[in-house]
């Protein structure tokens, strides 16, 4: 039987960490997103025509939210578990009567919750800069939830894999951020030359942003079904890897 109390304990412990670092966890991503709106939305965006009938400022909102969700999910989840390894306090979790399910529910649940709160805060901030309409709020929340969970799981895997602080940063900075910038955060894939459109289709983040943007404007670079399949596939891969990690004790048990 699942030890709900233990999962809740880890969850609340991680959420308390967010409270202690409110500036870093919430204020900083909200501020940097606001700067994106000022620079891309207002200064440069005013000279760019509408994309698919949506003003440029409004067009970039889903991409900006995704950018923050992906990086923050990874960073929160990876740091949470890595810090336990780094300080040695992970012994407590490994010797407690809990399985990997409770550990994941606690760590990944907390990281995903933070990302969802952050995504909604950025959405609220965007309202101050651009007029926004949400085509399908349910789908928007669903995408927000699914992406946060998936990338928090991915972050958790990175936190387990990393054996130093540099490794902790390397994937978010060198892989995720470039993929997000090249995944249509600030432009539509249709605007690229045909060759680069085909190359972009290899980037999984394109599908996430496209699906999320669809929930806002009812228009997307790729079909909603394909976007959902892609994120579900990523989720399954992450779940499989986490299960393997705990079965073998990779990087956590001697």
């Amino acid at each position: 039987m699942i030890n709900i109390q233990a999962a809740k304990t880890i969850y609340l412990f991680e959420m308390a960490r967010m409270k202690r670092t409110l500036g870093q966890s919430v204020a900083s991503p909200v501020l940097s997103t606001s700067l994106y709106f000022v620079v891309f939305g207002s200064a440069i965006g005013s000279r760019i025509s509408e994309i698919g009938g949506v003003s440029y400022g409004a067009f970039i909102v889903p991409g900006l939210i995704m950018l923050s969700i992906l990086t923050q999910s990874i960073s929160n989840a990876s740091f949470g578990i890595y810090f336990q390894k780094f300080t040695g306090t992970i012994y407590e979790i490994l010797s407690a009567p809990i399985s990997y399910i409770e550990i994941i529910l606690g760590f990944v649940g907390a990281a995903a919750s933070k990302s969802i709160i952050l995504g909604l805060l950025i959405l609220l901030t965007a309202h101050f800069f651009v007029p926004l309409e949400i085509h399908s709020p349910i789908w928007m929340l669903f995408f927000l939830f699914l992406t946060s969970i998936t990338f928090s799981l991915f972050g958790f895997i990175i936190g387990i894999w990393a054996d130093n602080f540099e490794k902790l940063q390397i994937i978010p900075l060198l892989i995720i951020t470039p993929l997000t910038f090249l995944g249509g955060s600030f432009y539509s894939i249709d605007m690229l030359p045909p060759f680069w459109q085909k190359v972009s289709m290899l980037n999984p983040v394109v599908y996430l942003i496209s699906g999320f943007r669809w929930s806002f404007y009812g228009k997307a670079d790729v079909g909603i079904g394909i976007s959902l399949s892609m994120i579900s596939l990523l989720l399954v891969v992450c779940l499989y890897l986490v299960r393997r990690i705990f079965k073998t004790g990779y990087q956590i048990k001697a």
Partner: peptide, 26 residues
């Protein structure tokens, strides 16, 4: 288990940290 090394999170209070351990055991 009381391990050999002193491994504690730095920023929590004694009360919270002891209760955290209790919670892990359900």
């Amino acid at each position: 288990l009381v391990p050999q090394e002193i491994t504690l999170s730095a920023f929590e209070t004694v009360w919270d940290n002891v209760n955290f351990s209790r919670g892990l055991f359900g």
